[in-house]
Write a protein that binds this DNA or RNA. Structure first.
Lengths: 329, 329
DNA sequence: CTGAAAGCGCTTACAG
DNA sequence: CTGAAAGCGCTTACAG
């Protein structure tokens, strides 16, 4: 930078000013500086800049799994818009672990990121609150509870509304013995989808079958498979199943295939999220599509707004759309 | 830091020394400093440190796709070992685009990362070379060509050997009319796997069927599907197919299912990589397993060695293992 | 074993 | 419109 200043016959102050487009600069001087920069192939040190301005242009992005297409798609959306604005994303994978989730916040503070978006945190609200308090700029996607809402931006899928669409579709197709296949209630989406299911059933004047809820491991297909295998044996009258996500649904379909239960003739299956797999398995999966990339992009937009001072603590709700395929026509 | 020094009754110099475990420090002083750090909840600024030491403890990790499980698994392995060593990873997604690949290098230079690993670069060697020259510390995974090998670490899968295993397995099962279903030749793995296929066939005294190579879009299942559908119609005698990857293989299986061609009875199908999908589809996929997480971990190890001064330009070859499932017993 | 001081490469009040 | 100087929070020769 000193070299550039010397070459252009000005001071570092001036160089800094033209590079930042700050303050009044004569066109002539500006041009001299720009020429010098060009000639010397000069590039500012981000680090020195960060030290002086207390800004890193780094954003932390916390997800519970990097092997889950649902999240990687959100990340893609986020990355694209972050890069556009000259911010970079530091991707942090917690593997769904509470301790790692908290640890990430501390780490990101250490790195001095300018903001954080945390996706589907497993942390309950009383743990999330102090973390959100500590940071100025946080956006939470599908977070649990409400304690932290005063302090952070929030994006959440309308899982209740989504489930209503799924159930209504099944009921309209004449299904009467519906069940829900879900994960443990450790994430917002889990609880919401389950309650959405119950609500919709109730609205249709039906009761769930069986009355207890079928809980299965939701991050791979095996969970849905083994769980539904048991369930369909115990309750063979079941003719429709709404699932926590597409993996669980794919597992249910596999169980049906294996037991000679026909999908959709005997049992109609609806998934959630619309990951690639939904269209790859046979029969292809009717599912609720979540606009994943859009969520990522929106999260970054909201975060940047906060970073730039407009700290309104809004909550945005995202609708899901029912995509009808073979498993539940 | 000044506060800590004051609290402990020493200078910043001393504080810095105990924090870095550098130089001789009396136990007594060390303890005072540590206590002060504890009491004040002090944490060093990474940025200031970076400015002074010219080290950021950031590593760039470039992949052609973040939606491809093959790469996300490699990233997981890399992240785990990087974090262990107190390095963080900046994940960069190029979407397989040459320009973005080059752009990432420049960006990472801007961020001043301490090192870069680039996975399956699409850039041909003459473009990769100057980039590798510019950086001290680069590890290339499955890179094309050899021009840059003098300057960077290299990890590559033994695709020729892998394909030999696949072909031998098919031949041993009595298959005689084999074909290869692959992607365009823009990546090292593509060319290697294809040549491995031809070699192995040759060694078995067979010729490929058809003689021309079937090229299909390899990053989703559709490519393999539509390509194999045409192929099996034109060459119905085909009784075995080795595929560039599992997605292509899954597409081929779907084509068979649709046409009433039985897998494996009529056609045996072998994939490559062993992603989750391989065990989810029906019939489950016989495939070559690549130790993805191991590759990621190894890449970081090699990179850190270079960062720490041992700059041997080694090439490590990774073996693939044939996993036998239903599609080619 | 410890300290005073310069330096890393920028930005930004404060003057003019 | 431009400059001199202090400061961001560390590290590291150089002295003692």
């Amino acid at each position: 930078m000193a070299d550039v200043a010397h070459q252009a016959g000005v001071t570092k102050t001036t160089v800094s000013r033209v590079l930042n487009n700050k303050g009044e600069i004569s066109d002539e001087t500006r041009q001299k500086v720009l020429d010098a920069v060009e000639q010397l192939g000069y590039r500012r040190s981000r680090i020195a800049r960060s030290l002086a301005t207390d800004q890193t242009f780094l954003l932390g992005f916390i997800v519970p799994s990097i092997s889950n297409e649902f999240f990687t798609e959100i990340v893609r959306g986020a990355e694209d818009t972050a890069w556009e604005k000259d911010y970079k994303i530091l991707l942090c994978n917690t593997e769904g672990d509470w301790a790692r989730e908290e640890g990430m916040f501390l780490f990101l503070e250490d790195i001095q990121v300018d903001g954080i978006v945390v996706c589907a945190p497993r942390l309950p609200e009383e743990h999330l609150l102090p973390l959100v308090e500590q940071f100025q700029n946080v956006v939470v996607v599908n977070g649990q509870g409400i304690a932290w809402r005063e302090l952070a931006g929030s994006i959440e899928t309308d899982d209740v509304g989504g489930m209503a669409k799924a159930v209504d579709h099944l009921v309209a197709a004449g299904r009467r013995h519906l069940t829900y296949l879900g994960g443990p209630l450790d994430a917002r989406t889990s609880t919401e989808r389950y309650h959405g299911f119950l609500n919709a059933l109730n609205a249709a004047g039906l009761t769930p079958e069986p009355a207890e809820r079928a809980i299965c491991f939701p991050t791979n297909l095996e969970g849905g498979y083994s769980c539904f295998k048991q369930l369909i044996r115990a309750y063979p009258q079941t003719d429709g199943v709404a699932c926590f996500n597409d993996l669980v649904a794919a597992g249910a379909i596999r169980a049906c295939n294996e037991l000679g239960v026909r999908v959709p003739d005997d049992v109609a299956v609806v998934g959630c999220d619309d990951i690639q797999l939904a269209n790859l398995i046979q029969p292809s999966l009717t599912t609720l599509q979540t606009p994943k990339q859009h969520i990522g992009a929106l999260a970054i937009h909201m975060l940047l707004e906060r970073i730039n001072g407009q700290r309104d603590h809004e909550t945005v709700t995202i609708d899901q759309q029912l995509i009808i395929r073979e498993s539940a026509p």
